[in-house]
């Protein structure tokens, strides 16, 4: 079966700076793929090249077997793109927004009317479709943002940070809808700051850092790379920077990152057995008030691969 998306060797430079450096991955038909990376890692630039907004300096993108560079219009017909920002006209109603973009996507007028009703229902806004978008909550705007991308029944849905700035309830609602779409066979590319969202929705994950994909695989494969490494979350009162410096030199500690004013995240081989040594290493730098040892997970894999946290 033709993959929903294949990108190979994507490069984008701005002057001397290479912001995307030989990025490549693929998404199979019906697969949900997560692209994880901190701010500035090159996620949005990569997505801009995938959806034909930006021409890569090198590399190629094929959507459903169609080369985006050779036939961008046909390729874009297969993509439903949800940008990071709320790309809607606030002075129009949701229905008017949907009608405009639906017509731009070439949906016949009669089909469009019924399809608008369907997608409004799908995102849970059937009762508010005739209200102006600027009267919506953040979550409702996000859902409308997604609805626009679903109008033309795309084969590949690309969601760029779709839950930024929404309340937990709306986030759950959005994730439920996305899971349902994937369950119905839609292919998905999902980027997010929230590890738990990617873990929940995606079956395969690519980790992008400083413009490069540093790892690509299923969650199980990525976590397996850690071997017997655990994630340890330390909470302490005192100088966290000095404590992290001391912890880094403890044998068995591969990473030590300050994650807050009183928290440190560690990657430790055989975490539970090493706890006494860790507590001793902190010493005068602060008083440890909490310790949590977490079995290997995607968060730990990310830290292991990039040496940083997602919210850096």
């Amino acid at each position: 079966m033709t993959p929903a998306l294949v990108c190979e060797g994507l490069v984008k430079r701005y002057g001397d700076k290479t912001v995307v450096d030989r990025v490549g991955f693929h998404i199979d038909e019906g697969e949900a793929y997560g692209l994880l990376g901190p701010n500035g890692a090159g996620k949005t630039t990569t997505i801009s090249m995938l959806v034909g907004l930006l021409r890569p300096d090198e590399g190629s993108v094929r959507v459903g077997g169609i080369d985006v560079d050779e036939d961008p219009v046909a390729a874009k017909r297969l993509i439903g793109y949800v940008p990071q920002e709320i790309a809607l006209y606030p002075e129009l109603t949701a229905r008017e927004n949907l009608r405009y973009f639906g017509r731009l996507y070439g949906l016949p007028r009669r089909e469009l009317t019924s399809r608008i009703g369907e997608v409004l229902d799908l995102v849970g806004l059937a009762g508010r479709g005739d209200d102006k978008v600027d009267t919506y909550s953040g979550g409702m705007k996000r859902r409308t943002n997604i609805a626009v991308a679903l109008l033309h029944r795309p084969r590949l849905l690309i969601l760029d940070e779709p839950t930024v700035g929404v309340d937990p309830q709306s986030r759950v609602a959005i994730l439920d809808r996305v899971e349902a779409l994937v369950g119905d066979g839609m292919s998905l590319l999902y980027t997010s700051h929230y590890m738990e969202e990617v873990e929940r929705v995606c079956t395969r994950v690519g980790i992008i850092d400083r413009g490069r994909v540093v790892a690509d695989g299923t969650k199980r494969e990525l976590v397996a790379e850690l071997g017997g490494t655990d994630r340890v979350e330390l909470t302490l009162d005192g100088d966290v920077t000095a404590a992290a410096d001391k912890l880094r030199v403890v044998e068995g500690v591969s990473e030590a990152v300050v994650t807050g004013s009183s928290s440190i995240r560690l990657l430790v081989a055989g975490g539970r057995h090493l706890l006494p040594a860790l507590l001793a290493a902190v010493g005068d730098a602060g008083a440890v008030t909490g310790v949590e040892v977490v079995e290997p997970d995607l968060e730990a894999a990310f830290l292991h691969l990039t040496g940083s946290t997602l919210r850096d």
Binding site: R77, I79, Y81, P83, I86, A87, Y89, F101, L104, Y105
Partner: peptide, 15 residues
């Protein structure tokens, strides 16, 4: 600025 231009450019029409 609002992102709607990119949304139009991402539609299956010439840029």
């Amino acid at each position: 600025q609002n992102g709607t231009l990119d949304r139009m450019r991402a539609a299956p029409v010439p840029l």
